[in-house]
Design a protein around this nucleic acid. Structure first.
Lengths: 349, 349
DNA sequence: CACACAATGCTCATTGCGAGCATATTGAGG
DNA sequence: CCTCAATATGCTCGCAATGAGCATTGTGTG
């Protein structure tokens, strides 16, 4: 337990900056600690992987690299994040983007809790797998290890019909707890939309919505850990993906959803590629991120036609067939089009 | 000045939760204060407006409704925000969405500063203008009051050629300051893309990029207030939009950009509409948000064809011409399409 | 040297969308 | 009542983007 002295009282003048006209608010605001978390993503051997830190002393839960934000040392969140990641993993991040700030970390904290409150700011970082050294490989895990139901590369994952959908259907039919916020959309419909049942289309971007639904229904281990009531009512459930520390799986879900959305309108896919690549390698990388197979010829037409790439003049010979032209990212596309990206249609299966 | 006692030291055990394996980090992290800020948007008489609080005692700067996050009172950020807004303005918010967390508030704080560090979490809220009472009208201002260059409803705003572009061109040609981060994209190209010169297309979603460019170039008052070096080198510049308190204009820029992007793939436009409306009223609202004129017949085809609306059976007669059918938002569309929205193509002029 | 395997080139039907013409209904003014 | 201005609404045409599939070109291998 942390002593009461750690709950700092913010002086009046600080509050005044918020409410110079003296509104009704008078209470003092305790300070909080800000945790910076990075979901560092790469594509390694056609598998989307995320960097994790194993924590042997806490039952082997995986965690994202993270550390507290210190305004005395870090000028910006992003700067602080880069410092932490560099210290903890040795990686120098390239592309970094803020995802979301979670105020109800792990949702386990009670309002009267005396623990210093921790707020999570999640970040997405994309890295070329070529940077990963052999010795570091063990620290990277497929993101489908944590979200098996998101992996549609071999068709609809069996875990959906076998484990998830029946339990969600049952949950949807149970009466809601009193005090639970009335949702504008019924449970039934949320399940239908999120998990593509009864003819609804699978939307690969709804990663977070699906995870939060499973959490609400008490079907992921984090819900049980955090003591959700709904979870207590449950018979033992098979492990639906690997648990992570704190709210890190939620942050990772946000990261996956954002990556899947973003490659469609920003050329961030090239952050995951080596400097030179064949068009088919590019396609495999996109498929690793999004899921199902794309039409090869059309993918080529799309990418070339959009001016996203240009040939380097070199060839790759060991393709197993005819040699392939090597391409590089064509940076000028950023100056030509307002929203360049791999505009693959959602809802393919 | 705030006494040193206000810089709370976080105890070791708190840090340990971040770094159980004992990495190299040992310094203590001071706590920070989290400010919640709301950009509350409505469309009033075909004008996009934002709720502002006037602050007569600080030179009349406008501010967004805001208040500190208190984990003791607020279970979530969003809950805290709703409480603050309700207390300060009497508004009960409907649609609310988190925008971004700004760690370098106002960018004026130095790393060695002893002021309690304030982090801004910005939110976007959308409201039906019908909720606004007559007496409250004075608290709402057109968002183009703060961003005149964003208003393309009467064609390309004159302020661009007259004031902005020439100064930006000059700024782009000046050598960068030493110590300034080397940007992957040259100043010249950033100006070109952001402000649609030399044949580049105007991207109405790049609101934040444009504001940040003007800030960097020292052309908005906030930059001068915050003591940017670049700004000091400048001869007096005409007022480019109205300044706001702290980083509120940056938050508003984020809000505008997000709104413009979001109505294209989520039916949030209906948060701004009364329960019944004509298709032309809907079009005017979209145009207020996005800018230029849309083709009336095609807009109708788009909206009806996407199943976004359904006729109520009622008619509106005082249209100035033939009476118009009244429509309502068709909620079922959420269950049918993965990303329903007013899919207007960007880059129209 | 034929074959398997990929890479690459091209066609064709369908759809989506920009643009404009045409018609239907009102209220206002003579 | 009649005409006109203004708006609502319906429909067509043509181009561009896209999904799907066939055909051809090069390499490595047995």
């Amino acid at each position: 337990m942390v002593s009461d002295a750690n709950v700092r009282r913010i002086p009046r003048e600080s509050l005044e900056r918020h409410h110079p006209k003296g509104t009704a608010m008078r209470q003092e605001a305790p300070a909080v600690e800000i945790g910076l978390n990075a979901a560092i993503v790469a594509v390694l051997d056609n598998e989307p992987v995320v960097h994790v830190v194993r924590e042997d002393d806490t039952g082997g839960q995986d965690a994202l690299p993270s550390g507290p934000f210190s305004p005395l040392k870090h000028r910006t969140f992003e700067g602080g994040l880069r410092t932490w990641v560099s210290d903890q993993t040795g990686l120098e991040l390239g592309y970094v983007e803020q995802l979301y700030s979670f105020g109800d970390r792990g949702r386990s904290a009670q309002p009267d809790d005396e623990m210093p409150h921790v707020v999570s700011v999640g970040y997405l970082a994309l890295t070329d797998a070529g940077q990963i050294e052999e010795s570091q490989r063990g620290s990277w895990r497929s993101w489908y290890h944590y979200f098996p139901w998101e992996d549609w590369r071999k068709g609809r994952p069996a875990i959906l019909e076998a484990e998830i959908v029946p339990r969600l259907r049952e949950w949807a039919e149970r009466p809601q707890h009193v005090g639970e916020p009335a949702r504008p959309i019924a449970r039934q419909d949320r399940v239908r939309m999120c998990f593509a049942i009864d003819g609804a289309a699978w939307d690969e971007e709804k990663v977070l919505e699906r995870y939060e639904l499973l959490y609400e229904a008490g079907l992921v281990e984090e819900a049980r850990r955090d003591g959700r009531e709904a979870a207590l009512a449950w018979a033992p459930t098979p492990r639906l993906g690997a648990m992570m520390r704190f709210d890190h799986r939620r942050i990772l879900a946000t990261a996956i959803g954002r990556t899947r959305a973003k490659i469609k309108y920003r050329p961030v896919i090239f952050e995951l590629m080596p400097p030179e690549f064949t068009l088919f390698e590019l396609q495999r990388t996109v498929e690793a991120i999004l899921g199902p197979h794309l039409h090869k010829q059309n993918f080529r037409r799309l990418v070339e036609g959009a001016g996203l790439v240009e040939p380097t003049g070199h060839m790759k010979t060991r393709t197993g067939g005819r040699p392939a032209k090597l391409y590089r990212f064509r940076k000028e596309v950023l100056l030509e089009r307002p929203a360049p990206g791999v505009r693959v249609k959602p809802g393919r299966v």
